[in-house]
Design a protein around this nucleic acid. Structure first.
Lengths: 135, 135
DNA sequence: CGTTAAATCGGAATCATTCTTATTTACAAA
DNA sequence: TTTGTAAATAAGAATGATTCCGATTTAACG
């Protein structure tokens, strides 16, 4: 998902363009990894002093609903990142900087046999550690 | 992990025996699945009116530290279950009742090649949906 | 029994997140 | 360009899970 396409999609779905939304999306576009609402707030406060958490969360969730961002829960806090372009995959997540690396192994094919009578709704496979830069 | 061994371990590590601790462990022993602190509180309030969340959380975390319970984060809330006996595996988790099914597929072997320069600390693979009873 | 550290209680505090109400703004239509 | 309207925002209160704190109680050991 690139910035231009994300903004276009926003408009097409009938949502308004605001500088805050562009900056928020750009923030994620420029960072290949997961960030929290708090991270976003700190980044935004320079340009928009007094921006409220409400605005940030509202937009983050809107963007998740529109498929522009992805969300995962990490240590009791929601973390967001730009939606990946490529086909289904999982992530290594650096616990220091939040940067991610795509993992192209998905265990769900092998698993299906074990869950005959179950209705599977979704799954989560994440690997945590330190990236080369933070190690 | 069975109840008797859990209580024995508690004692051996220098912790005190209390009825509350036994009941708490029994609760998990008798339920093959994840439960929240709130679930525990509701269960305990019959016998111990006025039991505090502090006591429950303190014990839950103590038990996790001792390896008697496992914990996972689900929809912004910590969920606990009796520590599994068997070797490394993952879980299907029913989003209705919290019951689990062991999944004996672990993708980490295939993944190692993708993470040469990374330091891997842990990983999470969980499958969510409805169990046959709740479906 | 008496001592003592551990456990508990009760309630305040914290942290992430959501809600409420009033105000402002983007943008479409006149 | 002006204006009407729904959407977006601000500010702060409210919520829900979890943790902390000070005072009190209790298990366990000698």
């Amino acid at each position: 998902m690139n910035l231009h396409r994300a903004l276009k999609e926003l408009k097409e779905k009938g949502h308004k363009y605001t500088d805050k939304r562009e900056d928020l999306l750009r923030f994620f576009y420029e960072h290949n990894g997961y960030r929290t609402a708090r991270d976003v707030k700190i980044m935004m406060e320079d340009k928009y002093p007094g921006i409220s958490f409400d605005t940030i969360y509202r937009n983050l969730h809107l963007f998740v609903d529109l498929g522009l961002l992805e969300v995962t829960e990490l240590e009791g806090e929601k973390h967001f990142r730009m939606k990946c372009e490529s086909k289904h995959h999982h992530h290594f997540i650096c616990l220091d900087c939040g940067k991610t690396k795509e993992i192209h192994t998905c265990p769900m094919q092998q698993v299906s046999g074990e869950l005959q009578d179950y209705s599977v709704e979704n799954h989560k496979f994440e690997i945590y550690g330190k990236c080369p830069a933070c190690k």
